[in-house]
Simulated assay, not measured.
Amino acid sequence: MAALGREAGEDLRAAGVGPVRAGEAPKDIKVPTYTHGQSSPSLGDAKLRKPLVIEIIEKKFEYLSKEKTLNIYGTVTFGTTAGISGILANFIFRHCFKVKFDTLKTYASLTTLPFLSTIVSYKLLVTDALYSGKISQENCVLRSSLIGIVCGILYPTALAFSKNGRLAVKYHTVPLPPKGRVLLYWLLLCQTEIKAMMLPLILQTAFGIFLGLQHYAMFESTLEKTVHED
């Protein structure tokens, strides 16, 4: 046993490892130390990463604010043109039916209802669907143009026709139509003046196509920039 101990001690000394005494640390074991004020690599990376994250978030907010401004401005303008179409339709049918009563009431409803219906329809059918990624560029343009035709022309025209026709019957401003032929009689009465609605029809359709294309392009540009920076 003593021989084995001496041989082990000689092997350790040959390998360069001395005996470890009480209270001493082994000389070959290196303990990493950090001086005061020296930060670890992970903390330094976090400090460098933080400004980049803040910059990306700020740019995202900037892109979203620009898109939101375009969305609000375009939708309000779209609704305003629908309200103007309602005013024109009300003027035409009041002239056809020779109605001179409830002027403020009819003009207020013919301006407000097409305006609100256009804004709500555009938000539900175009804006929300675009943000969810469920429609293509062709569908976006098609929906926008159909909203311009339906909410900006057909709805205010039918509303003005109905309201002023009832006032004509109530105040007897035009001869009463025969029973069962009310709609045909009134259409024949207004067939010349109603052709003036072709101009707002063309304008609403063109503006709907333009707004759909612009809104989709802005959405795609914002999405590409956001993904590229991420």
Results as ranks from 00 to 15, higher is better:
Pro200His: 04
Ile135Pro: 02
His172Asn: 12
Lys170Ser: 09
Leu201Pro: 02
Gly152Cys: 08
Ser144Gln: 05
Leu199Arg: 08
Ser144Ala: 08
Ile135Gly: 01
Gly133Trp: 04
Lys195Gly: 11
Val182Asn: 08
Ala158Glu: 10
Tyr122Phe: 15
Lys163Cys: 09
Asn164Glu: 10
Arg166Tyr: 09
Gly165Leu: 00
Ser145Asn: 06
Trp186Ser: 09
Gln137Ser: 13
Glu138Tyr: 10
Ile202Asn: 04
Leu183Val: 12
Leu203Arg: 02
Leu125Asp: 08
Gly148Pro: 01
His172Asp: 12
Glu193Tyr: 12
Lys134Asp: 08
Ile194Leu: 11
Leu125Val: 13
Gln137Ile: 14
Ala129Glu: 12
Tyr171Ile: 02
Cys190Thr: 08
Tyr171Glu: 00
Pro175Glu: 11
Met197Asn: 05
Lys170Asp: 07
Cys190Tyr: 00
Val150Ala: 08
Leu176Lys: 13
Tyr185Phe: 10
Lys134Pro: 01
Val141Ile: 14
Tyr155Val: 07
Thr173Gly: 01
Leu167Lys: 05
Gly152His: 03
Ser136Glu: 06
Leu184Ser: 15
Asp128Pro: 05
Leu124Trp: 14
Lys123Ser: 14
Lys179Thr: 09
Thr192Pro: 02
Trp186Asp: 10
Ala129Ser: 10
Gly180Tyr: 03
Gly165Glu: 01
Pro200Asn: 00
Glu193Asp: 09
Cys151Val: 09
Gly133Ala: 03
Cys140Thr: 14
Leu187Ser: 10
Leu203Val: 13
Lys170Pro: 00
Gly152Asn: 04
Thr127His: 12
Ala158Pro: 00
Ser136Leu: 03
Val174Gly: 02
Leu184Asn: 15
Ile202Ala: 14
Pro177Ser: 05
Ser162Met: 13
Val169Asp: 15
Cys190Pro: 00
Leu167Ile: 05
Arg181Pro: 01
Lys134Asn: 07
Ile153Lys: 01
Val169Tyr: 11
Leu146Gln: 12
Arg143Tyr: 13
Tyr122Val: 10
Val169Phe: 11
Glu193Arg: 06
Val141Glu: 07
Asn139Pro: 04
Phe161Asp: 02
Thr192Asn: 09
Gly133Pro: 00
Lys179Cys: 06
Val126Leu: 07
Leu142His: 11
Arg181Glu: 14
Leu189Asn: 07
Asn139His: 09
Ser136Val: 04
Leu183Cys: 08
Lys163Ser: 15
Gln137Leu: 14
Arg143Val: 06
Leu125Met: 15
Pro177Gln: 06
Ser136Cys: 04
Pro200Leu: 01
Tyr131Asp: 13
His172Ala: 10
Pro200Lys: 01
Leu184His: 13
Leu130Lys: 03
Arg143Cys: 07
Gly180Ile: 00
Thr157Gly: 07
Val150Gly: 02
Met198Pro: 05
Ser162Asn: 14
Glu138Ala: 13
Val141Asn: 03
Ser162Pro: 01
Met197Val: 14
Leu199Ile: 15
Ala168His: 02
Lys195Leu: 15
Pro200Gly: 00
Ala196Gly: 12
Cys190Leu: 02
Gly133Asn: 03
Ser136Trp: 04
Ser145Arg: 07
Tyr185Asp: 12
Thr192Ile: 11
Pro156Met: 03
Gln137Asn: 13
Ala196Gln: 11
Cys140Trp: 03
Ile149Tyr: 03
